[in-house]
């Protein structure tokens, strides 16, 4: 249960790529707005290609982060127990010991029949 999952290199690559795309579109917006200010133009929304690049980077980052994150583990106890063998759970009945707290717990019990 304490085994680390192998890191997903493809996922990290995808995340990096999407982040670079985001940075690039951010810088393009910045340049575009400076250009508009330089020629005294009014703001009329961002050019189409920057918006498309932005949306693509967001979508690709979503894909990447889902790949990078650890897998989900099943939560039902049954599936976990199904993976255990009988040897790990209840082994070697000929080696049972009897010097345990049952001696104290069951001392005064009367078995009703």
């Amino acid at each position: 249960m304490a085994v680390q999952q192998a890191p997903s290199h493809l996922g990290r690559l995808v995340c990096l790529f999407a982040f670079l795309l985001l940075l690039h579109s951010g810088y393009s917006t910045f340049e575009h707005l400076s250009y508009l200010k330089a020629i005294d133009g009014h703001e009329s929304g961002l050019p189409q290609d920057i918006v498309i690049e932005l949306m693509a980077s967001v979508a690709i980052f979503g894909l990447g982060i889902v790949m990078v994150a650890d897998d989900f583990k099943e939560i039902l106890m049954e599936t976990e127990m199904a993976k255990q063998t009988i040897e790990s759970l209840d082994a070697r009945p000929s080696f049972y010991g009897f010097s345990h707290r049952g001696r104290a717990v069951f001392r005064n019990v009367s078995f009703k029949k």
């Binding site: 104290a104 717990v105 069951f106 001392r107 005064n108 019990v109 078995f111």
Partner: peptide, 10 residues
């Protein structure tokens, strides 16, 4: 039953 009763009384 018996195990339960034993633990309960103890």
């Amino acid at each position: 039953e018996q195990a339960f009763q034993a633990r309960k009384s103890y």
